[in-house]
Design a protein around this nucleic acid. Structure first.
Lengths: 111, 111
DNA sequence: GTATCATGTCATATAACCTAACATATATTC
DNA sequence: GAATATATGTTAGGTTATATGACATGATAC
């Protein structure tokens, strides 16, 4: 895993930050976790820790729900994505794409 | 300001995260803030919010202190850095340098 | 040896987060 | 159209995290 990906996977953000970055409610975030759409780790005291990738994930979920997809639909969509990603190697172009996604997310936050 | 810089300046990290990323104690972090070496913003309830740049900053402070510099020394060092940075334009090479610093920091965390 | 510096520690208060349960509006199914 | 399912709101009670301020302390400097 590249260092960039490593950084984006660092689970360091508490739910309050996620709430602000995604404009989702705690209830929604926990519900999506319950349905295994995101899998935050837990800190020492049992509190959720999210990564920047989780932020992406949650914004995607939001879009899918807005588009009329159900939680189950989204579970399948993500499962398909995972299958496609199997065996795919890190590449310069993949890195570039992930960078673009990152920028897109920040742009959204600072609309 | 570039989007990368924007992202690195987003104050979204609580002190607990900073503690883990820097291995500093809360006491140290607050003391450095008190001495204006870092300037976290405050969230709704008054809690500190740090950025990734603050993490860099704190790691630098740590190094300077380990090297025998005093808080006041470090204040002056930072003041000098700010003066040098005045009028400096964003450039590709600056971006590349900041990227390297970013990687260095993550590397340190995962050493 | 006394003053300063950087940090530890403790007390007390508030904010953030946790889980679980019940409520509800909207859409779906029979 | 009554019953079900889905996604979310809301409330309650408990635990963890963070804030501030005060006092303590080991090291260094003078």
């Amino acid at each position: 895993m590249s260092e960039r990906e490593l950084r984006r996977n660092l689970a360091i953000l508490p739910i309050g930050t996620i709430r602000e970055l995604t404009l989702l409610t705690d209830r929604q975030i926990r519900y999506y976790e319950q349905n295994e759409l995101v899998s935050p780790t837990r800190g020492k005291g049992g509190q959720r820790r999210f990564s920047l990738n989780d932020v992406d994930r949650l914004l995607e979920i939001k879009d899918f729900l807005d588009a009329g997809d159900s939680i189950k639909d989204i579970q399948e969509i993500f499962a398909k994505q995972r299958r496609k990603a199997v065996g795919k190697q890190d590449s310069e172009s993949a890195l570039r794409r992930s960078l673009q996604k990152e920028f897109a997310q920040i742009g959204r936050f600072n609309h």
